[in-house]
Design a protein around this nucleic acid. Sequence first.
DNA 1: GATTAGCACTCGAGAAAAGTGAGTGCTAAC
DNA 2: GTTAGCACTCACTTTTCTCGAGTGCTAATC
Lengths: 349, 349
Amino acid sequence: MDLTERKLKILHAIVADFIHSAEPVGSRTLSKKYDLGISPATIRNEMSDLEEMGYLTHPHTSAGRVPSDKAYRLYVNDLMGRYELPEEEKRIISENIQTNVMELENTIEHVAELLSKLTNLTSFAITPRQDTNKLKYINLLPVDEQTIVLMIVAEDGKVINKALRINVPYTLENLELLAKAMTQTYRGRTISDVLTLDIIKYFETDIEAMSRLAESIMPNFMKTLENMLNVDLYMEGLTNIFSIPEYNDIDRARMFLEMVNRKKDFTDVLVNRDNGVIITIGNENSNEIMQDCSLITADYRINGKLVGKLGVIGPTRMKYDEVTSVIKYMTDNLSSAFQITEGDFDDEE
Amino acid sequence: MDLTERKLKILHAIVADFIHSAEPVGSRTLSKKYDLGISPATIRNEMSDLEEMGYLTHPHTSAGRVPSDKAYRLYVNDLMGRYELPEEEKRIISENIQTNVMELENTIEHVAELLSKLTNLTSFAITPRQDTNKLKYINLLPVDEQTIVLMIVAEDGKVINKALRINVPYTLENLELLAKAMTQTYRGRTISDVLTLDIIKYFETDIEAMSRLAESIMPNFMKTLENMLNVDLYMEGLTNIFSIPEYNDIDRARMFLEMVNRKKDFTDVLVNRDNGVIITIGNENSNEIMQDCSLITADYRINGKLVGKLGVIGPTRMKYDEVTSVIKYMTDNLSSAFQITEGDFDDEE
DNA sequence: GATTAGCACTCGAGAAAAGTGAGTGCTAAC
DNA sequence: GTTAGCACTCACTTTTCTCGAGTGCTAATC
């Protein structure tokens, strides 16, 4: 059977209507609301065909039709038009990004928050994997007799610091010496590279005090490096799920919240997505418990270098056109806001 | 009317039973389950008195009795016994704290997570206010032409860093000079103190490049200081709320989640609580939307210096004895794990 | 041959009715 | 003061009924 022009028109109308109303769409409603030029009976016949072809389903005999994931896919690929963001929203987004442009980390949080507000969905942002990020310097700062701060700076400007409790006495001199030695040894190496080294052996020195200090610090250094590899996840608008009719059921709401709160799993899913604007719909998600959700993500870059991903998660019935436009506008804006006038950095990723 | 020994006994039984079952307690159940030596009819009379006195309520005529907040307060103050934690739980807590003792920040997150697991409630941890924390040094690190890292270290070892985008060219030398100057100027002053200064004026120098660099950095410096004043909030076990019968209602669950997700408000409530083990029950909470929740918090200290608070939030029907014991055990353990052998730091609070 | 009007049929949702049972409050006896 | 007895209450559950949106089929129409 073929997807005739008319079938596409009907399907489009059904998807659009259902996205808007969350109610199964019947033939009469359709013929009244949309100017299709055919009677309900004809629509019924076409609907029956569309169902056979897998684009529609039927909650029960006497209910209207509901789009399947396959229909959403068709809608997203071929049917939905380009949605032009209202100027007002564009303004809000640009302003938000501009006023925060000086601090990368905070900007991302703000943008995620804004995204959830504009879409009424749960939004998130992640930082990229740090595997290939290289160490730039390592610093050890005294705080008190038993506490020092370990600080690691990576080439891309990422800084991590940890207050460490150490159980050996130290001198300022030793601390500086050790930091210098560490910087010398690790500068320019990637984090994952450093993690494969037998770090503890590495720092045996003749000076007893130094070697004990190193012994005390190295395990934490490694732990901190491991932490650095983890991507950060910001999530906003969790409770938006409650305003979606599909989730007006305690068990579904619970499942959803438990899913996104399993941060490790959820982050994995996000990290492994391709770059660009990616839409996965319902059963296209490999993760089983996500199969009645759709996920839209996009990456943003500074001078071609991936710095993060931004996205939303919600029911498969989602305003794909609007949401995609918002995300796209945001990531484009982010990318250009952080653009360096003269691009002279090496592409990576 | 007086709270006779018998009334107390009955009230105790009702509270204990209701905490366990979440069902209104009837006179017959009570006389069967607990060896009170009196008949249901007598219990009914006593219950009637207790209701008149404000310790019990009645969802409707033909339902059993439910403890009021006043009853919980009496229970917590006078009736509930000391709950001895099972050795197994003690072991888990100590081990968890011991293995993470080297990194303060992570430890707190772990502990909060453990707390939510052990109590099946929503748990949280906050860091203390930083008003009186003093600056120790300020560092400016180059990353690339348009990015530097601003790093602020406080006397207590708290470190904050921000990657900043600056729009003026800089030299390594200027950066170092500026950092030194800033350190010199601000070292030893409290954060709130520094924030009252007219910082931007402060750094006018003759050298054009320096003054432009300072101009570019100072607003961010102030913003970062402001951020430093904010207490950090970790929350765990949000979805535990779904396994509590009281919240088996989409609207109540929603209200709860929206409340704790309003991080700013929630943090304020926590910050303003007294130190020590504090239990507030239902309407004792000044915050209106918390009035059907109970909140238990405790602080923990290192050498007498407050470093944070730990707590749980849940329905007023809560195992006060168990939860209190767990929190107490955790904060005691935290405090002693971080104890310095020789206490030689000034008390601060 | 495609389209459409007509009509019987389906089935979930919501309202109304009936039944159930835990629990109360009162009274009178112990 | 305590308790047995009993009528009464009222949320909750189950059952029954009604309603209406929607379908699928058939026969008439364009």
